[in-house]
Design a protein around this nucleic acid. Sequence first.
RNA 1: GGGCGCAUAGCUCAGCCGGUUAGAGCGCGUGCCUCACAUGCACGAGGUCAGAGGUUCAAGUCCUCUUGCGCCCACCA
Length: 954
Amino acid sequence: MPELPPQYNPKDVEEARYQWWESQGLFRAEPDPSRKPYTIVIPPPNVTGILHMGHALNNTIQDILIRFKRMQGFNALWVPGTDHAGIATQNVVEKALAKEGKRRQDLGRDAFIKRVWEWKEQYGNTILYQLKRLGSSCDWRRTRFTMDEGLSEAVTEVFVRLHEKGLIYRGNYIINWCPRCQTALADEEAPREETQGKLYYIRYPLEVPGSEFRVPSSPKTRNPKPETRNYVEVATTRPETMLGDTAIAVHPKDKRYKGLIGKHAILPLVNRKLPIIADEAVDPKFGTGAVKVTPAHDPVDFQLGKKHALEFLNVMTDDGRMTNVPKPYEGLDRFDCRSKLIVDLEQQGFLGPIDEHLHNVGHCYRCHTAIEPRLSLQWFVKMQPLAQPAIKAVKDGTITFVPSRWTKVYLNWMENIQDWCISRQIWWGHRLPVYYCQACAGQAGVRSSEFGVRSKTTPTNYELRTMNKWGVIVSKTAPTKCPACGGTDLRQDEDVLDTWFSSWLWPFSTLGWPKKTKDLEYFYPTSTLVTAQEIIFFWVARMIMAGYVCMKQPPFAKVYIHGTVRDLTGKKMSKSLGNIIDPLEIIDQYGTDALRYTLVTATAIGQDVFLSEERFAVGRNFANKLWNATRFVLSTVASGEWRVASAHSSLITHHSSLTVPDRWILSRLQRTIIRVTTSLDHFLFNDAANALYDFLWHDVCDWYLEIAKIQLNQTSDVRHQTSGVLVHVLETSLRLLHPIMPFVTEELWQHVRSVSGFEFQVSGSTGTRNSKLGTRNSIMVAEWPKASKRMVDDEAEALMERLQAVVTAIRNTRAELNVPLGSRPLVRLSSAKPSVRTFFETHRALLQALAQTGEVSVDATRRREKHAAAMVVDGIEILMPLAGLIDLKKEEARLQQKIEELNRYISQTGVRLRDSQFVTKAPKDVVEDTKARLAQAEETHRKLSDLLALVQSM
RNA sequence: GGGCGCAUAGCUCAGCCGGUUAGAGCGCGUGCCUCACAUGCACGAGGUCAGAGGUUCAAGUCCUCUUGCGCCCACCA
């Protein structure tokens, strides 16, 4: 092995190490009944995805778990893959097409799909390569894609099964429609955003039987007296929907409108008669207490429409233009129509006041366009029956959320679950396995014919049987003729399925389902799901439901929900906000291990992660520190001079012959092993990382390495033992740190191994494992450290604490009195306790070296000696005669000068603070700040005075 | 309108079952290129643990309320 350079350069290590791991087959897992499986399926990133910090955090956590479990001897499998991400991917390809001046319709469906596949082949694996740079130890041979043949088969299978169970239906419902993407969206895909809008008051004249309606007499008066009122005023945020109004509703108990119920109003500009109905759903306190009812364009109105058998009038096209409306508005964009309507209403005296109105409007989660609630014929999954076992599983603890607070969120959603709209009017995705027989009936036929049609009939769910009668065929394979009439003119439904309809099957579809595979049998149910809170509903809940439907078993036992990555101002990191920190740039600059370490320390269990770029330097520095500690340790174990083989066991058997610092660091190591193991068991990743940082940096490097330098100059027995302890502590620590910082630990471990001649244990080293892996030479498969109770040593820890306290006290005095580095002050320790005296007598050399002192004397009682710095630590008196070591006159003068400066400052500031002008006129924080500074100055003054007295007494 | 989370050092955050003197990193001050590391070493300054009440021998930690910030869900047009 070549010598290690004085600085760790991740670039020299990472790529080569990763390739080596992969070439050694270390990421692979195969069913093996002799071992327990530990399985994670990756939350499949979108094929369009590029790695962001959220991915980095998510995958770092998964990799830590996988590496940890693998070292513990589990047969650890991490299944990777990507999601076809219907709308997102289609958008990307459409954008590329747009650059060529084409639309997808110009290509036609088949050519367009071909184009998407080409795009996928070219760019779709980008994110997977990026995951490799994170060090992810996935079994890449098993990479899956939600549009793979096998996974598509799973999708069809589950659609048909659910259909057979009567859980899939087609129906007219109000859905979220994105006029830009021109597709239906599930509720979760249309998050609401607070939007500043306007509330328009519009006056609908009352119908007077037998005569023309009257124009309102006092349109500009806000509250005309009831007796003069000849119209009903309604409020709306979307005036354009008035063209689809088919009623006006009021609360049945609302006295203001009592007389109007059952009468009619006239729709302004259109002159359609609207019945005035009464319904509890109307809130008398909002607006005017009267509401226009547009059953085809609003979810509440839709319910009213069904209940009161109103007309359903669709007045918008797929791309958000007006249709089936009077001429001046026909074909207008919905927002242009809104403007025109306002002008026209105003001119004709129908417009009341306009208020500013803050409300929540749904937006397309892909393109951010305001969604349009719209009546539409779509496919749905009945969710309530599916939810039952999924609710039970979480309630009875079969599946647990970490942190547990998400349980409530999950249950709350599941218990109020709505049916899932699964059809999407896009081209990229799994086409519905639904075929229509043209001969049987046209009713259930082509979607576009549904729109803009005035229908007197209340929409109903097309029940399964009815659908079949109408020639709707649901089939895994394309039928050649209609089972009902034998007709051969069959057309497959144009729609594709929601992206999540394939990803909800991910935990078992990736393992081979619907085929009964060995993988499925062995690795399912998976162990842990690691994901973000945003997709609890989209994905986690649905996977649980799918698990029970398809496998009769939960998909996983534990769900770890990590936080959201935010910037320092608390904003979510997103491209549009421009506050992204690119993980790949961080890797280039600081290294993968630094990225992983910092991400993990930043995330307390399930808490959001606030990041700034500087934090990654901490991780880099830690890797470098470890690198240099290893360089030092290896330099002490000169190759060939001696072998510290089987040091593990010899350290235990010879424990009593070790020095106190040896016993101390070994004891600290045991505690670290315990803490890291339990922390990882409980998803306390930051705790594990911090424990290792503290131990390695502060215990090992700051103290033990310095002590080792002294011990290595002592007898050959001590030298031998010290080397053994150093190698043991380092090698064990590397293994503990490996899941978090895989690259640097592997690199160093290889060096430690080759130089020291250690034969390290490999986990599950009972033969089968080794022959399967064909290797036993990677830290990846080294055994996870086990704590030895015999090495936990309270006595040594207490003694070392005392030694450290004394050393620190001496260093403190040296620093405060500016004792030059070369000066070696005498130290007189005194303690009444014989055991303490014995300890310091035997560790004199350590004290001298660590605190840079001269002679150390240990007495039972304090010596009478002048000119001494004195302090008491832990019952031990420490005297340091400093005469001759520092220039007393110079020091005295320096102190006196500083004290005078402080005197001036204190008196001036004191006067200033007593000045009422200052106190009343200066800003409050300035006054507070001045007070604080004064207090600080006084404190320093006291200290310097004490020092001066000390110096003067010498 | 429901639900959840967070308020601890100048900044970003730890602090698990309530238990001695509340920690870390960054930043700041002082002194050091000491033969593993200046991506470093030593020492130091800096905290009424948001506010109020309660439980307890004991509260940063548990309970209640208040204030401020953030997030999720929800059909007030």
